[in-house]
Design a binder for these strands. Structure first.
Lengths: 347, 347
DNA sequence: CTTAATAATTGGAACGTTCCAAGTTCGTCA
DNA sequence: TGACGAACTTGGAACGTTCCAATTATTAAG
C-alpha cells in the first residue's frame, strides 16, 4: 500500500516535457504554452501528484505558513480571534499553524521554536501570562515578522495590536455612574497582567473623574473564567457595604457573576448591574443580554493578520503599535429597560 | 538585518567536526562522544542555529506534523477537542496544523490538500456538513492515516471516533420520563446530519420503549447554536399542547433554550426541564447547572490523537470504528419531578 | 606486538523542488 | 536567404538535511 511518491520528474516523463516545464506549470507561469500546460495538468491529475512543499521551501526559503500562538484556546475569545486570522490568511494563500500554550511559558517557547523550524513566514502571538522580552528576543532577532495581539510586551520591538482597554473600562464605569450607581466593583482577572492593569486603571480613572472614592476592597481578582466570576461576586457580596454594580474583567467573568447573583436570588440587570468586556458571541443572546465593551475578536484577528501580511510583503517594516478602538454595547445586564444604544469611543 | 541562514555545515566548521556528526548530535544519537556532543551543542547555541525541518523531511519523508481539521472552531466543543488533540500530539513530539473549515466543503478540500502538500503524517478530521466519501477518497487512497471524529462517514474506509449519540439520547429521555414528563421535545440541530439522526433516533426509541407517542411537531430543528436554541424553544411554546421538557441537540442549543425560557418568565429547571448534549465546560458553572450528556471533548481529542499516533507508528493498520461511551450528568436544569412543579405552577 | 572488536567520525550521494543561463523553434523582415 | 527576436523549453546546479558505507582512533584480547 506504500505507493511510491510521484514527483515532477515522473510527471515530466509521462507528459514528454522537462521537469523545468512542469515546475513552471505548477507555478502558473505565463511562459508556458497553453497546450503544454493542459497536457501537464492532465497528467498531474491522472497520476495523483501531490506537490512537495518541503522541497520547494528548501529551495526558495519562504514558506506560505503563518503561525498563530494563543494562550487559551478554550476561551472563545481566542478561538474567534484564530478564526478571524484564519480567514484572511487562507485567502492570501497561506496556511495557518495553530498552537495553544495554555498560559505556559515553557510550552510557548517550544511551539515558537517548532514553528521557526518549520519556516513560518510570520507569527501572530497572544503571549502567555508572564511572557517577558527575553522570551521573544531570539525570535525577534531572527527578523521574522511578528505581531503581538491582545497582550503587548513593552520594548519587545515588534508590532502589536491591542484593544483600548483603558478607554473601554472608563466608558463602562461612566455609564454605570450615569445610571446612579455609587458602589461599583471591579471583578475578576489576574492582577499581574497588563490587560488587567489597563482595565483597572480605566475603572479607577472614571471613578476619580466623578470625584468618587476607589476602595481597594471593591477590586477583586479571580481566574478570568466563568467559575472565577462566581467566586468574585460571592466575595463581593460578603462585604458589609455591598456594591450595586460591577465592571467585570471579561465576559466569561461577567457570566459567572450573573450565575452567582442568581444563586443568591438576585436578578442581574434588575437587582445588580453587570458589564462585561470583549463581547463574545454569547453576550448578545444571553439572558439578560450582556452589556459589554465590544472588542470584536474576529475583527482583531482579521486586522492582526492584515498587519502581519503587510510586514511579510514589505520585507522589513517598522514595528507599529496599534490600539484598536472599542465600544460600549449597552444591553440589558446593566439595568432598567433601556433602549439599546451604542456609544462610540474613539481612542 | 537579513542574516544568512546558519546551517549544519556552519556548525560543523565552527566546531571542527563534520556535518554528519552535527546531524547525529541533532538527532540525539548515542553514537557520538559526550565531549563532542557538548562542543557541538555549545556552537549551536552560540550561532543561533535553527533546524530546518523542510530539508530534513525532504530527505526522510516523514514530517512530525499532524493536521487537525474542524468544522467550526467558534463552537467551544471543537475548540476543546483541538486542545485535547494538541496535548497528546505535542507530547509525542509532533506539532499540529489546525484549520477551520466553517462547514464549507470547498474550504475543507483546500485545507486537506494543503496539509498533504506539507507532508502531514496524519490527519484528524471533523468533517464539514455534507462531506461525502468521494471528498475523502484521494486522501484515503494516499495511505495517510486519518481519523474521523464526531461525525462518521460510512464506507470511507478510515478510522472513526464518535460518541454514542443514540445511547446518550435514550438515557436522557428515559430520565425525563422517570421524572414524570409526558410531553418531551427534541430541539435544535440540522436534521440532515448523522449526529442529529442518531440523537433523534435515541429520543424516539426511548419514547417508544415507554409506550409514548412521538409526535413530529415536537421535533424542531434549528441552527446548532445558542441563537438556534432560542428560536427552537419559541416555536415549541407556540404549540397548543406545550412540552414540559426538552432534550436539546447540544449544549449551545440548551443554553439558548434556557435563555428563551427566561425571556418568557419561565425558570429552566423549575418550570421546564432542559437537557443538553456534549457537556462543554460552561455546563457545570451555568445557572442552573446544565443536565447534559457528557461527551468530554478534550477526552475525545485525546483518544483521537492516540488512535492516530498508533496508526502512524504501526505503518498500516486496519481502520477501527470506535464508539465512545457517554454518560448522563444530572445537574439542576432538568428539575424535580413534574408533579411538584405542576402544583407550583397551578397554585 | 598483532589482531580483533568497538567506538567515533566522516565524505558523498540522495531527497524534490526552483532558478538560471542557455537552447530550440518558428515566424518575420530586410 | 540570413539575421533577429519572440515564444517556449530545458539541463544542471543549488537548497540543508539524512543515511550509508567507509575510515580512523581506541581498547581489549591473545
Amino acid at each position: 500500500m506504500a505507493k511510491e511518491r510521484v514527483t515532477v520528474v515522473d510527471i515530466a516523463r509521462a507528459a514528454g516535457v522537462s521537469k523545468s516545464t512542469v515546475s513552471l506549470v505548477l507555478q502558473g507561469s505565463s511562459l508556458v504554452n497553453e497546450t503544454t500546460r493542459a497536457k501537464v495538468n492532465a497528467v498531474i491529475r491522472e497520476l495523483g501528484y501531490v506537490y512537495n512543499r518541503s522541497a520547494a521551501n528548501l529551495r526558495q526559503a519562504k514558506s506560505k505558513i503563518i503561525g498563530i500562538v494563543v494562550n487559551d484556546l478554550t476561551n472563545s475569545f481566542f478561538a474567534e480571534l484564530a478564526v478571524g486570522v484564519d480567514a484572511v490568511v487562507q485567502s492570501a494563500g497561506f496556511v495557518q499553524f495553530l498552537a495553544n500554550t495554555g498560559e505556559k511559558i515553557e510550552r510557548q517557547r517550544e511551539v515558537i521554536a517548532s514553528m521557526r523550524e518549520h519556516g513560518v513566514s510570520g507569527l501572530i502571538i497572544s503571549p502567555a501570562r508572564g511572557t517577558e522580552v527575553r522570551d521573544l528576543a531570539p525570535l525577534v532577532a531572527s527578523g521574522i515578522p511578528v505581531v503581538l495581539v491582545v497582550r503587548d510586551i513593552a520594548e519587545a520591538g515588534v508590532s502589536s495590536l491591542i484593544s483600548d482597554n483603558h478607554a473601554g473600562a472608563m466608558a463602562a464605569v461612566r455609564h454605570l455612574i450615569e445610571r446612579g450607581h455609587r458602589r461599583i466593583a471591579f471583578l475578576g482577572g489576574f492582577p499581574d497582567t497588563a490587560v488587567f492593569e489597563a482595565r483597572m486603571r480605566g475603572y479607577r480613572d472614571a471613578l476619580r473623574e466623578a470625584g468618587m472614592p476607589t476602595p481597594d476592597e471593591l477590586i477583586i481578582g479571580s481566574a478570568p473564567s466563568r467559575a472565577g466570576g462566581v467566586t468574585a461576586i460571592e466575595q463581593a457580596m460578603m462585604l458589609k457595604e455591598r456594591p450595586t454594580a460591577a465592571l467585570c474583567f471579561n465576559d466569561a467573568v461577567a457570566f459567572g457573576v450573573c450565575d452567582g447573583l442568581r444563586a443568591r436570588r438576585l436578578e442581574p440587570g434588575a437587582d445588580f448591574a453587570v458589564i462585561g468586556f470583549d463581547d463574545v458571541i454569547e453576550a448578545k443572546t444571553a439572558v439578560p443580554a450582556l452589556t459589554t465593551v465590544s472588542v470584536d475578536p474576529q475583527g482583531m484577528g482579521d486586522r492582526a493578520a492584515q498587519l502581519l501580511l503587510k510586514q511579510i510583503n514589505a520585507g522589513r517594516a517598522e514595528p507599529e503599535a496599534i490600539v484598536s478602538p472599542v465600544r460600549l454595547v449597552v444591553r440589558q445586564s446593566c439595568g432598567g429597560t433601556v433602549e439599546r444604544r451604542v456609544k462610540e469611543i474613539s481612542s
